[in-house]
Design a protein around this nucleic acid. Structure first.
Length: 583
RNA sequence: GGUCCCGUAGUGCAGUCUGGAGUGCACGCCGCCCUGUCAAGGCGGAGGUCGCGAGUUCAAAUCUCGUCGGGACCGCCA
């Protein structure tokens, strides 16, 4: 049907008779016997010179037979790769007529209401941006597959229909026809199956797996998303991180042409101390500075009662942050659980002939001269800086300042440079279940405690680290994983801490635990979100832009109108009755 | 469930604060003109439930209340 694509033609083809096929991009009329047609395919576009009687307009699908000709002097277009040539003596064959599209098929559609783009996604996909994004995605997938296969990982598909496990994310349920009243669940992840593959002796498993979670949608979350899911036997943490890194870095190199440096590692505790979050964005500084010692003997009540005091410094922020903005930050801090937010503007002292720095702040009068000097020294502050201090429980202090740091300093996620980061040694338990009074697992109940902390499991469970780790890119969590418990005795100890006795464990996790009685290898794994990785590599801040057919945050697809009602007979067959909607 | 922002021709916008007739602007569309453009150009034309509903007013795109839709974020996402 075609001898060439539109983007590949150049002066080297001059004189050749070619046949091309594609969409009419634009038509320029110049009188009765001359018109220019820019015709486009996914590779680019070429100008065709035709008689004005040719009856086509934008988005018609045509086949063109013509002769590649050098453009006459003065008409070369240096803006496009095919600008030196054009097709003369064209015969246009209409393959499909087209109505005018609802929005322009070019970069102007970037500004079109996203619902309109999604309703006509097949038109949106014709645009260079979307073509590029989907091809980047394909490269990412290919690079990851090659990286995994190259490390002797075995690609195995796991079921989409699996038992419901109420822990974790809300599941999509699928009613059973053969067993009315019973349901499958769509996988939140292949977690259970990949561990059973290890028991099954696969040694190294991977899958580009579709995962489904019925939680509210966000810029970085869809109901359906793709994970590179992997699991390895006879490994320790380093083995998993090294193996996982290869795919991520290969994908990055395939897209950007630059191989990222080795991924640095930071412990969860250090991440919280320095950045106030378990997914630090390393593209900017503004690290949390420890100030607790400065106020050991303070008379300022807000600080004397707190066991963790930290601050961040906004360079030159004193002028940019007026009372309104500071009140906004204070409200933000309070909404996150802080008792308050202390702000200090660094100014030159008002004392005559003094070069000393001082604070302009509602609380300045509560701070001693020594404390003022110590803060300025610790924060390395200079005139015009803004200092924000939170004094609270350690977790609150870190989290609040981490959020303020992001809010004030964080660039859009896709702005370079890329900073990959492993966060390791997550706590085994995070917080307490208010219903049971028991610790809650930080990752999941099958996560292996750090061996050095095993003796504290019962005596001080909240201080126990886990063999769990996250991969972070520019402040986005790309993925997480852990070494799993393969020893039933240790598993029972962890369950016991969670308040799960043998009977309950058997009831909730029986089909998953029984295999471990038959000889489970030590194993661990990891999974990372391919949508998020692709979005950042493609320079997009929303994963919808790198998904062919995404859903808006309502979950309602404007193109297909799903979800939709079904025939009563379908419900009958499944034994399902729909309740009337509550008013 | 919550906070903030948005909704005006097919598309993108101005107008909304400070109420006064939708001749509003650009692109697109239709017709005519035009032999070297490349977001071609010129002339003309069609195209509107100002998201929807109530209220205030002599008068509402504009003010008020409600509602629907969309976006970002919080909750949620082991």
């Amino acid at each position: 049907m075609r001898t060439h694509t539109y983007g590949e033609l150049s002066a080297a083809n001059i004189g050749q008779q070619v046949r091309l096929a594609g969409w009419v991009n634009r038509r320029r009329e110049h009188g009765e016997h001359l018109a220019f047609l820019d015709i486009r395919d996914h590779t680019g576009l070429t100008q065709c010179v035709v008689d004005n009687s040719v009856d086509v307009r934008a988005e018609f699908v045509v086949a063109v037979t013509g002769t590649v000709t050098a453009r006459v002097e003065g008409t070369v277009n240096t803006d496009i790769s095919t600008g030196e040539i054009e097709l003369q003596d064209c015969t246009i064959e209409i393959l499909s007529a087209a109505e005018p599209p609802p929005f322009p098929i070019d970069e102007r559609a970037d500004k079109v209401d996203e619902m309109v783009r999604l309703k006509y996604r097949y038109l949106d996909l014709r645009r260079e941006r979307m073509q590029r994004n989907l091809r980047i995605r394909s490269k990412v997938n290919a690079a990851i597959r090659a990286a995994m296969a190259g490390q002797d990982f075995v690609e195995v598909e796991t079921p989409m229909l699996m038992p419901s496990t109420p822990e974790g994310a809300r599941e999509f349920l699928v009613p059973s026809r053969q067993k009315p009243g019973s349901f499958y669940a769509l996988p939140q992840s292949p977690q259970l199956f990949k561990q059973l593959l290890m028991v099954g002796g696969l040694d190294r498993y991977y899958q580009i797996a579709r995962c489904l979670r019925d939680e509210d949608l966000r810029a970085d979350r869809q109901y359906e998303f793709m994970q590179l899911d992997m699991e390895m036997s006879f490994v320790e943490v380093d083995d998993v991180l090294s193996a996982a890194e290869v795919g991520v870095l290969d994908a990055a190199e395939a897209v950007t042409g630059v191989r990222p440096n080795e991924v640095p590692r930071i412990t969860w505790h250090d991440a919280m101390e320095r950045f106030g979050t378990d997914k630090p964005d390393l593209r900017f500084g503004m690290e949390l500075i420890e100030l607790t010692g400065v106020f050991a003997n303070t008379g300022f009540k807000a600080f004397s009662s707190a066991n963790s005091i930290k601050g961040i410094k906004v360079d030159g922020g004193a002028l940019r942050y007026g009372r309104n903005k500071l009140d906004g930050l204070t409200d933000e801090a309070k909404s996150m659980g802080a008792k308050g937010l202390v702000w200090l503007k660094v100014v030159t002292s008002e004392e005559e002939n003094s070069q000393k720095l001082a604070f302009q702040s509602p609380v300045a009068k509560f701070l001693s001269e020594d404390e003022t000097a110590a803060i300025i020294s610790a924060m390395q502050a200079s005139e015009g800086d803004l200092i924000l201090i939170v004094a609270d429980e350690w977790t609150t202090t870190c989290e609040v300042l981490g959020e303020l740091r992001n809010r004030i300093g964080r660039p859009p996620v896709h702005d370079g440079p890329y900073h990959y980061l492993w966060v390791v040694d997550f706590p085994l338990f995070v917080g307490v279940d208010p219903a049971t009074g028991r610790p809650r697992p930080g990752h999941h109940a099958f996560c292996h405690p750090h061996p050095e902390d095993l003796d504290k499991l019962e005596s001080d469970p909240m201080s126990v680290r886990a063999w769990a780790y996250d991969l972070v890119l520019n402040g986005w969590e790309l993925g997480s994983g852990s070494i799993r418990i393969h020893d039933p005795v240790l598993q029972r100890r962890v369950f016991s801490l969670l308040g799960i006795d043998d009977e309950e464990a058997d009831r909730r996790f029986g089909f998953f635990l029984e295999p471990f009685k038959f000889g489970a290898p030590p194993h661990g794994g990891f999974a990372y979100g391919i949508d998020r990785l692709t979005a950042i590599l493609a320079g997009e801040s929303n994963i919808r832009e790198i998904i062919a057919f995404p859903k808006p945050s309502s979950g309602i697809d404007p193109m297909t109108s799903s979800p939709s009602e079904v025939e009563a007979s379908q419900l009958d067959e499944l034994g399902i009755r729909v309740l009337p909607q509550a008013e």
